[in-house]
């Protein structure tokens, strides 16, 4: 099925009737996913959003429960099940949702806060037509033209968007948009990244054996220990849990945390298993390229290139991959 690009606003209006629709947009000079305001044009082309859409399913600060202190404690869980649509999310960011599904929904415990949002979100993905020079998703095993876990997959068809439903949720979307859709449409699906990285199938296991390799002394020194890479990363999911008290009441919340921070693994007694940036960067790279693969069978790096683009020290995980593949 295809949707005329001139009908895009009409289509979004239908979707926005009973859900919050997030689209690629701009706030104060930063391209990111924004709540669609009912009329703005949507920027589906150009560079990918500078910030990933992960905060829609995993907010950077998320309230968990309210409590009352005193002689008798009361705890009241905060339950939110917002109906949300992420429109125009690219295959790299779609793969990051796959990674987060593994983390939050598997291995013994289901994370209720994530699962409630995940169940109620509709993912309308857009095949990438404009990879940046820092994009390397196809080296990480992705197809920039397709997101298998999308509810609806869209691809550019010139004057139209070519739509295909992959799930029941997706079929419901196409039904809702039926009046605006027509049969046919030729989609462009030949996007490839220009940056090719030597991410060999053997690398995850090879890295596991390189924990004490001198390569870490070299590749970690430029790091300034900030959290930019982790906060612009679509797959970094580490969080902290903390309290916010107001008198005898308070709220427990969780918020994004970063393995780059000095207090991240420091224990109450002062012992820190990852005391310097060498151990921290090593853990981050290993997590992305080896540990996660060992645990969940896929890479935790989707090749979106945001960390390469934003690192203050211009550190580059693709240079590390190439170097590690060679040694």
């Amino acid at each position: 099925m295809q949707l005329k690009k001139t009908d895009l606003t009409g289509a979004l209006k239908i979707l926005a009737a009973d859900a919050s629709v997030f689209v690629p947009g701009e706030i104060e000079g930063i391209k990111r996913f924004v709540l669609w305001d009912g009329e703005s044009d949507v920027d589906l082309g150009g560079a990918n959003t500078q910030l990933p859409p992960k905060d829609i399913l995993f907010p950077c600060t998320e309230k968990m429960y309210n409590y009352k202190m005193g002689d008798s404690i009361e705890i009241k869980e905060i339950v939110e099940k917002p109906r949300q649509v992420i429109f125009g999310i690219r295959p790299c960011d779609m793969r990051s949702i796959d990674c987060m599904d593994h983390v939050f929904l598997e291995k013994g415990f289901v994370d209720s806060y994530y699962s409630r949002k995940r169940e109620n979100v509709t993912l309308i993905a857009m095949g990438c037509t404009t990879p940046e020079r820092t994009c390397f998703c196809d080296s990480m095993g992705l197809d920039p033209n397709n997101a298998p876990n999308a509810d609806v997959m869209m691809n550019d068809g010139g004057d139209t968007l070519v739509l295909e439903a992959y799930t029941e949720k997706g079929k419901a979307v196409l039904e809702a948009l039926n009046g605006l859709l027509s049969e046919g449409g030729q989609a462009k699906k030949d996007t490839a990244c220009t940056l090719k990285v030597n991410m060999t199938p053997e690398l995850p296991e090879k890295l596991a054996g390189m924990f004490d390799h001198p390569i870490w002394d070299e590749v970690t020194r430029a790091c300034i220990g900030c959290a930019t890479c982790t906060y612009v990363c679509p797959t970094c999911y580490c969080f902290d849990i903390d309290s916010d008290n107001h008198g005898a009441e308070g709220t427990k919340f969780r918020c994004w945390d970063s393995c780059m921070f000095s207090d991240y693994t420091r224990m109450a007694g002062g012992h820190d298993p990852r005391p310097t940036k060498k151990e921290r960067v090593r853990n981050r790279y290993m997590h992305k390229l080896s540990y996660f693969h060992e645990r969940y069978g896929q890479h935790l790096c989707v090749g979106c290139g945001r960390c390469v683009e934003k690192c203050p020290a211009h550190m580059d995980i693709t240079m590390f991959i190439d170097k590690a593949a060679e040694v």
Partner: peptide, 18 residues
């Protein structure tokens, strides 16, 4: 013993390898 926050294998900080 490691520093822990979530206790359910999600929040990330108590990993040793995978």
């Amino acid at each position: 013993e490691m520093r822990m926050k979530c206790g359910i294998g999600k929040c990330g900080r108590c990993n040793i390898g995978s």
